[in-house]
Structure formats: structure tokens, C-alpha cells
């Protein structure tokens, strides 16, 4: 698959390394060159400096050929906008975002954007470890 990752923080860079190791073509977008350095020499992926809500930058990353776009910047509204550009303007088949602020889950839902909310994931895992089976007190 050709996959574009918006945001080269800890999650973005780890995803990029893993996906490229599995043989996928990966391009990573981030406005900070310093962040893009996280990719290191081991990751066989393209690094694009810029904002993932700028069509010029998205095209440079190859959005016209992309099979999937993953928006994992630390800003939910950036993720939301990048996801909508990918889905509605470029018809990218698979678009996944991260919703940092759990208050925004409703918004992602109402726009039909597929998302992962790390706050919920952590809370669920901790809950499951603490109270196996989810019994009431």
C-alpha cells in the first residue's frame, strides 16, 4: 500500500518505521525538520516538510496515489481537516485519524471520520487490568 502519515511525533514515526518494514511505501509529513529526523536512517520512507492541510504539501507527498492517509498530528482540527481533504477531495480509500481530546469524538463521529482516541484506549486498558470482567463494586 501507499500510505501517507501526517505528523511525525512518537506515534507517526513509530507507525512509519513499522509500515515501511512490512514493505509498504510510506511518506511522512511534518512542519518540523527536527521531528522528521525521528525517522532515522533505518526507515525507508519519504519525508515531506510542511503542513498536512496544504494541498501543495499533500500532493508532494503523493496524495493522488495514496491508498491510505493517517492523521496523527497533535492538533485535532488539523487531523480533521487533513482527513476531510484526503477523503472528500482526493477520494483516498482509507483515512484514519487520532482524536487527542476525547471531547472531540462527537465531532469526528458526526463527520463520519474514522478515529482512534488514545485517552479511551488507555482508560479501557487500565480499567480491564484493574477490574477483570468489568464487575461492579
Amino acid at each position: 500500500m501507499y500510505i501517507i502519515i501526517a505528523g511525525c511525533g512518537r506515534v507517526g514515526s513509530a507507525l512509519a518505521a513499522r509500515l515501511s518494514m512490512e514493505g509498504h511505501n510510506v511518506a511522512v509529513i511534518d512542519p518540523s525538520d527536527e521531528n522528521l529526523e525521528r525517522l532515522g536512517s533505518g526507515c525507508n520512507c519519504a519525508a515531506v516538510t510542511g503542513l498536512p492541510i496544504d494541498e501543495d504539501v499533500l500532493r508532494q507527498a503523493g496524495i493522488e496515489q495514496a491508498d491510505a492517509v493517517i492523521a496523527v498530528t497533535p492538533d485535532d482540527n488539523t487531523n480533521l481537516m487533513a482527513a476531510q481533504i484526503a477523503r472528500q477531495l482526493y477520494r483516498v480509500p482509507q483515512v484514519i485519524t487520532r482524536a487527542y481530546d476525547s471531547r472531540r469524538k462527537q465531532v469526528f463521529d458526526s463527520f463520519g471520520i474514522d478515529f482512534v482516541c488514545p485517552t479511551d484506549l488507555v482508560a479501557d486498558s487500565v480499567f480491564a487490568k484493574l477490574i477483570p470482567g468489568g464487575k461492579k463494586a
Binding site: 492541510i53 492538533d75 482540527n77 488539523t78 480533521l80 481537516m81 476531510q84 465531532v107 458526526s110 463527520f111
Partner: peptide, 16 residues
Amino acid sequence: GRDQNNLAACQLAKSC
């Protein structure tokens, strides 16, 4: 000053 925020606000206002 941020385009992504302006878009989100308009879309929320309209659709929700």
C-alpha cells in the same frame, strides 16, 4: 489565525 480551526468551527455550526 488558523485555517483548520476556522473550518472546524464553520462545519460544526452548520452540521450540528
